[in-house]
Nucleic acid binder design. Structure first.
Length: 507
RNA sequence: GGCCCGUUCGUCUAAGGGCUAGGACACCACCCUUUCACGGUGGUGAUACGGGUUCGAAUCCCGUACGGGCUACCA
């Protein structure tokens, strides 16, 4: 590639960032880094009626959580700004008017009511959604049907109007998609999309072309839902800047839920997160759960996202970001949609928890425990706990249950489990155990187990019958790592305290 | 309805003319484990259908079916 690679993610700040959006971010980022290019984030906020407070900042928070930092954006600066389309408003009219002057677009004065009427009048069983196209435009109020003087008069009196592209008839429009290969369209089947809205803002169609040009974007990636409007964008490139300047396109396959395109409703309905991070709708107050808060590691989130529509051709499934940058190619991105499988997503997270060094878990786990009311003061102690329980945690939130007993004496130990087979002999055993443990000069897993078994032998008891009660005393329930490892980490004082406490509860 | 995209185990996918169609998740069984997991071994399970092209097709072509997307002064 001769020119420096420049790619952009262009979100509309209207709410949470879902899986599909995050994957688009990831693929953009990977592509940019692979070719030593720049990754730009451009905020597409041309629809003022859909403004949602906080949505823009939220998007950047999600990127930050994943470590996918842009080179240029509203927050990162750059020399192609502004990076918010609402701040670029004045730029677009010029291009729209240039298209009108060149005969590629026209003014349309139709009101919303008139458009509704048209759609209603021309609606038939065979054509349930009539389009404002070459056959309809001659029947509407626009600069193609009105006289020049009338048009000038309407413009002079500031009559509300839009600018629409004039789609040519019977022209074959084609382009080569990096993933799908050649895609063809018949121009007469595409409608005259609005380019400039009555409020002076551009629509996506105009803005994406103008901004990709001005920002010197070399590769434009977006979801498959944009494929049908590609002919409009191609024509605009041809009319405005020359088709040879157009970036290369790739349309990513959709991420599907149980019923078509994944939506945030699917998450609520089937009990899995859809957004990267928790999102609270400022208007309704509704909270939509995020992967972060659900207990996912960013490493795992990125990993699972990458594999939803791409693979490197081998059987490798666990990738670091650097791995991905190295191996990612657009040619290996699929053209078919992928269903999101939450079970597999959890598997990725589990793999990452097991794979990560304790140092990589220390911060998120410590934070989580603290937030749940546990007092985590000793980092070395926390590290030991994490090392001991990490293999049994699928989600970060599992650390709460799996390690809570290391930070607080179990409030309600499962005494019933002990009681059913409890007797004086066992009571005696534990009294003896306390005495022996008190005398232990070395407090480690091996000696704890050795002593335990020696005393059991003396009392003619099977260690197996005693280990479960011991576990209940230390853990509170039937789960967790090996009992002697637990006792080791807990330390002498706490271990003895817990045995004593349970013994008194039993008598 | 029209246009566009797609179709390998339930799910994510490998195999880009020559295999007993491979792996992973999930599921089941067994092993390991004096708890629960981890781990290990094995198992169930797929080329949508019909035509071509070819010595040979999951793979190339056509049709059908099915799925999805788009069809706003939303992105």
């Amino acid at each position: 590639m001769d020119k420096k690679v420049r790619v952009r993610f262009a979100p509309s700040p209207t709410g949470g960032l879902h899986l599909g959006g995050m994957r688009t971010v990831l693929y953009n980022y990977l592509f940019a880094k692979k070719y030593k290019g720049d990754f730009i984030v451009r905020i597409e906020d041309t629809d003022q009626s859909r403004y949602v407070a906080g949505a823009e900042e939220y998007i950047f928070d999600c990127l930050k959580w994943c470590g996918l930092e842009p080179n240029e954006s509203v927050q990162h600066g750059g020399s192609y700004g502004p990076y918010r389309q609402s701040e670029r408003k004045e730029l677009y009219r010029k291009y729209a008017e240039q298209l009108v002057n060149d005969g590629y677009a026209y003014y349309a004065f139709d009101t919303t009511e008139e458009l509704d009427k048209m759609r209603n009048d021309f609606k038939t069983e065979k054509n349930p959604s009539p389009q404002y196209d070459h056959s309809i435009r001659t029947k509407m109020r626009n600069s193609l049907t009105l006289t020049d003087t009338k048009v000038k008069e309407l413009l002079a009196t500031n009559t509300r109007h839009v600018i629409r592209i004039k789609m040519p008839e019977q022209e074959s429009i084609s382009f080569t998609d990096m993933i799908r290969g050649e895609v063809n369209f018949d121009s007469s089947l595409v409608d005259d999309k609005v380019l400039l809205k009555a409020d002076g803002m551009p629509t996506y169609h105009l803005a994406v072309v103008v901004d990709d040009y001005l920002m010197e974007i070399t590769h434009a990636f977006r979801g498959e839902e944009w494929l049908p409007s590609a002919p409009v964008h191609i024509l605009l490139w041809k009319y405005l800047f020359g088709i040879e300047k157009m970036p290369e396109w790739a349309h990513f396959p959709l991420i599907l839920g149980p019923n078509g395109k994944l939506s945030k409703r699917d998450g609520a309905k089937y009990g899995f997160p859809v957004f990267a991070m928790n999102w609270t709708d400022p208007k309704t107050g509704d909270l939509t759960e995020g992967f972060k808060e659900k207990g996912f590691l960013p490493e795992a989130f990125i990993n699972l996202l990458a594999l939803l529509g791409w693979n490197d051709g081998t059987e490798q499934e666990i990738f670091t970001v650097d791995d991905l940058i190295d191996k990612f190619t657009m040619e290996r991105v699929h053209s078919s949609g992928a269903h999101f499988d939450y079970e597999k997503a959890k598997w990725f997270n589990h793999e990452w928890i097991k794979k990560l060094e304790v140092s990589g878990l220390r911060f998120p786990v410590g934070e989580l425990l603290t937030k749940n009311g546990f007092i985590v003061s000793d980092e070395t102690y926390l590290d030991k706990v994490i090392e001991l329980v990490k293999d049994r945690c699928t989600l970060l939130t599992d650390f709460i249950e799996q390690s809570s007993f290391f930070f607080a004496t179990p409030e309600h130990p499962d005494l019933d489990t002990i009681k059913s087979k409890w007797n004086d002999q066992k009571q005696l055993f534990f009294r003896e155990l306390i005495r022996a443990y008190k005398l232990l000069s070395l407090w480690n897993t091996v000696d704890l187990e050795k002593t335990f078994k020696e005393i059991a032998a003396v009392h003619q008891l099977k260690p197996g019958e005693l280990m479960l009660p011991f576990r209940i005393m230390l853990v509170g329930g039937k789960f967790g790592p090996g009992v002697f490892e637990i006792a080791d980490v807990l330390g002498k004082t706490e271990t003895l305290k817990r045995i004593e406490k349970t013994l008194s509860l039993l008598s």
